[in-house]
């Protein structure tokens, strides 16, 4: 039985879904952040699988760029969370609703 790219795609879709669920259902900013990372990685998996299926190295290149962007995002995002925590003593996003209309 050959494991085709479709299998990996399916796995990635499930991972993505779990990440999305975490993002929508949890209110801890750190957990939400980790969920986002999960979703990014799910997409990375599809890139690599597609790179193999098509014999194109472009997919792997894309993963590298996603990685860099994710690293930058983590650096800034965590800095923001720390900064919020310093003034609010909380990591729950539900208490940060000053920007409501």
């Amino acid at each position: 039985m050959i494991v085709t790219a479709g299998w990996y795609m399916t796995l990635a879709a499930v991972l993505f879904l779990i990440g999305a669920g975490g993002l929508l259902l949890r209110n801890n900013a750190l957990v939400m952040f980790m969920s986002v990372e999960l979703m990014l990685n799910a997409v990375n998996l599809t890139f690599v699988a597609a790179a193999r299926a098509h014999g194109d190295i472009g997919g792997q290149m894309a993963v590298l760029f996603v990685l860099v962007v994710a690293a930058a995002e983590v650096a800034v995002g965590l800095a923001i969370i720390v900064s919020i925590f310093r003034s609010r003593r909380t990591a729950s996003v539900d208490e940060l609703s000053e920007l409501s209309g």
């Binding site: 790219a5 597609a50 790179a51 193999r52 299926a53 098509h54 194109d56 792997q60």
Partner: peptide, 12 residues
């Protein structure tokens, strides 16, 4: 995305 046939070889 889901191509038929053998996976091609790409070495990263």
């Amino acid at each position: 995305v889901i191509t038929s046939g053998e996976p091609q070889v790409v070495t990263g």
